[in-house]
Computed example of a mutant assay.
Amino acid sequence: MDDYAANSTSADAILSELIKKTARLHLAELGGGGLSLDSLARDCGRAVTEVQALFPHRDDVLTALVIDAYDASGGAMERADKDAAALHASAGARLLAVTRALRQWSFDHPAEFTLIYGSPVPGYHAPQDTVLPASRTPGVLAGIVGAALAGGELTPPRRTVPGPPLLLPAAVEAFGGLPPAPFSDVIERGIVLWSSLIGLLVFQVFSRTHDSVRDEAAFFDYAIAVAAETIGLVVPLDGDAH
């Protein structure tokens, strides 16, 4: 790559980051539906044509923000899991660490959290490019559940899925295959855990629990421990007798 091409690429990367940084500010003030290339160009001090050269449509900006949000939140969970695993933490302790990391990211970045887990932006449909970044969060959870299964840390469930598995083949493949009985429905249970986590965060980020509980952080930990019981995993909490 010659110097001109390298400088051009570098300039594009800098402008792209500036546009996204400005878009995040607009996202917090106006929501996803309030983004426009004209307003982004104005607040970046650039011509609309310069913005359009990198992001031809508003939806391209939204997609970039969605990908960044999934990567940032998933990355926070992955780092927390790596740190917990390095301390030889139990699977339950790893689960608590990664869910706390996602909670912290969510409170630190409420606009981005709303973009990926809140109300859909009217007229926007996330493209295939967002699928892999979005898979990082369930991927961390699946890794912990898989480690718990392999390490004998799961308690067999009292209830199993009636009839055949309720899964698409891609979900089974992503987990590494269908576990044997009595844990043959652990993937379904993992999806319950994942959805419980996101639902809990929605309640807390959007202040649905602040007038019901006196300590939201402690309640979050408790709720994760309760949700983990659905897959037979014990999450250690302060004050536990065991």
Rank of each mutant, 00 (worst) to 15 (best):
S36Q: 08
A148D: 04
S73M: 09
L18E: 11
A228V: 01
V48R: 15
A174C: 06
V213Q: 07
A181M: 10
R159F: 10
L167H: 05
R189M: 02
D12Y: 07
S184G: 15
A64N: 03
T160M: 11
V140N: 03
V172F: 00
G163D: 06
T114N: 09
S106R: 00
E173S: 04
S135H: 03
V145H: 02
S184Q: 13
A76E: 01
Y124Q: 08
E188D: 09
H26Y: 12
Q104H: 11
C44M: 09
Y124F: 15
R24M: 11
G75H: 00
R100Y: 02
L200K: 07
A225I: 06
R189V: 01
I231T: 00
Q52E: 15
D71N: 09
R208S: 05
R159D: 14
A28K: 13
Q204D: 12
S119P: 00
D238C: 12
A97G: 09
L65F: 10
T114C: 04
A174M: 07
P179Q: 01
S73W: 00
A217D: 15
A171F: 03
P180E: 13
L167A: 04
A13W: 04
A23C: 11
A13R: 12
D38A: 12
A223M: 11
L65K: 01
S16V: 04
F55R: 03
L154I: 09
D59Y: 15
P138K: 00
C44P: 07
L178A: 06
P127N: 08
E17Q: 14
A41M: 13
S196C: 10
S184D: 15
P179G: 01
F175G: 01
R189S: 02
E112D: 14
A93H: 05
S39P: 10
P138I: 00
V205L: 03
S10R: 15
T155I: 12
A148Q: 05
P56R: 10
D129Q: 06
I67M: 03
A85D: 04
D129S: 04
L200A: 07
V51T: 04
I224V: 15
A11N: 13
A23L: 10
A11C: 08
D238S: 15
P127D: 08
V98D: 00
L178S: 07
R94T: 03
A11W: 08
H26E: 09
V66I: 13
